[in-house]
Design a protein around this nucleic acid. Structure first.
Lengths: 344, 344
DNA sequence: AGTTAGCACTCACCATATAAGAGTGCTAAC
DNA sequence: GTTAGCACTCTTATATGGTGAGTGCTAACT
């Protein structure tokens, strides 16, 4: 079984997969011989295809009808047969222009990234924005709002800002808050928000324990730093995907859309695939049974060496891997730049 | 033609519409007689239906097959025949719980509102969040970020907060910004952001003209107040809608989804229907040809007497008007409360 | 030995035909 | 004014046969 597949078999396999990716129809020997210049007759191709099927690279739906690549086939294709298909210069220009035209706020960066990926690949895109509670605390500022409330402005090292309105405990003055801010900023800068919430906050207990309202002060800091555990997930291309023949059936569409709404599920998938660099998971390779006939390509983006988040393309196994992979690679580095340009 | 329709005709019309809303199938005289207790035979119902068709309340697809309500029919139904169907107490509790569980930030209020509406009505929901540049300016605060930049925090009367990072012009100090803030807050509070951008900013020119960098100061204020012209649009239920038999055809789904992505188009529709109170627009009554077989129910929400935004249900003309209308009415008042509770 | 032509066979797909079911409209009787 | 009865229309589901693309196998060819 460990029979190596010779060069001609590889050519045939590549042709089959290329054609199937293009047409979404099971591909037969005759078509293959006509469309691709393999230099042999359909009969020979038939034999080769039979061998490839025996080895598990191709599949047969019914006795008649052509062959379809298996997960193993796609895997071999992705690992060795794909011609690299770099993002063209025109596309790069287009993408740049897109970013510049639409992006005003930080969350629009992610939304727009998702949009671009789905536009180019015609598949669903997933963008996982940085997890705020893993971000490093930079400073916390208070602003007076009226006699009863203050605005808290939280800032992290990566340049994300979040604000809240908080009621002052009775008796407290704005000056009390200012003093607190000083202590906090002096002691806690550089820690992750998570650490601060769970441990570091205790460290400054002593510093402010002589404050008249220090219990409620702690509570307030706690609330100000609570960004919610959820990093945000941005989706794109849920409409594009309907162009794929895989979604000619409404049931399939509904099923997929409902799955995409399960934010937690999707996030778990992204976490699981969050390695370094580009990762391709094909069909059967997916743990989750809902994705047994989907492929997911993920890439992680970084800032200053720190892992920020993940971008991904989700589509049917029949997917333009070459294009999606190089696009993700490009967007990956691009995203870092845009975030940097945006905030620093 | 101004023939008034008597009580029995109304009963028949109501039965036809009720049944069509329930089943989505053209309804025939026989079914009607069996299901609804009209006290007359199918033949009589046939005659009545023929009359109703002549008067324009019902339509015939083909010579055979039952009747379907026309826009005029729905209109009559909505205006006079619907039994009010108030939101049940259980539903109210459910909605309250929903809000409390998920809403942490202001934008989540709108997202969640859209979600709730679509969940309950099984149709697409639209929520137009307040237009920021129509909001009244409350105050602008500056926070030091580092030597080169400040964070601007803009706050409006309705309690919305937005922040930006702005580079300081060379030579400016943070104290310069503080002075500017004082002037701005003293002079411009209460104006809409829009007015300030276009006119009122000129008024404070004199006040700060002795500042060393007043040209760039104006520019900075301008940028700080620029919230983008777009109020945000939140959608919900694009998956729910697939349950409706109207969307058994993928083409129809695609078309609708693409339309919903045209944010500007949708907003224009919402503006057009933005009256006071509840407004129902049925099928043909819609200006836009894309909506000729859809109905839109809109309701506006307010805060302190000021119009804030719109919530709406969009669905096929065959829609549970009673339910959707009372839900919108409830959400409408509810939304005001939630926003208030949230920010004030 | 590897390659190819030929042929029987299998499906999926499309169009047509047929039967069943639901509904209408009309007429005549109640 | 209401209803029963009947002929007619139109949609939907089902069966049938033909077509085309594809396979697998055998035998002939280089």
């Amino acid at each position: 079984m460990a029979e190596p597949i010779d060069e001609r078999k590889q050519r045939v396999l590549k042709a089959v997969i290329d054609d199937y990716i293009e047409t979404a129809e099971p591909v037969g020997s005759r078509t293959l011989a006509r469309k691709y210049d393999l230099g042999v007759s359909p009969a020979t191709i038939r034999n080769e295809m039979a061998d490839l099927e025996m080895l598990g690279y191709l599949e047969h739906l019914h006795t008649s009808s052509g062959r379809v690549p298996s997960s193993k086939g796609y895997r071999f294709y992705v690992d060795g047969l794909i011609p690299p298909k770099p993002v063209s210069d025109e596309e790069k220009v287009l993408i740049d222009r897109w970013y510049n035209a639409r992006v005003k706020r930080i969350d629009e960066v992610f939304q727009e990234t998702a949009h671009i990926i789905s536009q180019v690949t015609k598949n669903v895109s997933l963008v996982l924005a940085p997890q705020l509670n893993q971000a490093k605390f930079r400073c916390l500022q208070f602003l007076p709002l009226d006699d009863y409330r203050v605005i808290t402005v939280l800032m992290t090292d990566a340049g994300f800002i979040e604000n809240k309105i908080i009621e002052m405990p009775s008796g407290a003055t704005f000056e009390d808050f200012q003093r607190m801010a000083k202590v906090i900023n002096a002691n806690l800068a550089g820690h992750t928000l998570d650490t601060i919430q769970h441990h570091a906050l205790a460290e400054i207990r002593d510093e402010i324990s002589d404050e008249p309202l220090y219990e409620s002060a702690l509570e307030i800091i706690h609330r100000a730093l609570d960004t919610g555990k959820k990093e945000r997930l941005y989706l794109g291309g849920t409409t594009q995907m309907l162009d794929q023949p895989e979604f000619h059936d409404v049931e399939k569409v509904k099923e997929t859309l409902m799955m995409l709404e399960e934010e937690e599920l999707i996030k778990d998938i992204l976490y699981a695939h969050m390695g370094d660099g580009l990762e391709v998971t094909i069909g059967q390779e997916n743990e989750d049974k809902h994705f047994k006939d989907s492929s997911i390509i993920t890439a992680t983006y970084h800032l200053d060496g720190e892992l920020l988040g993940t971008i991904a393309v989700l589509g049917p196994t029949r997917m333009e891997y070459a294009k999606a992979m190089s696009l993700l690679e490009y967007m990956n580095s691009n995203l870092t730049n845009v975030i940097k340009r945006f905030h620093w």
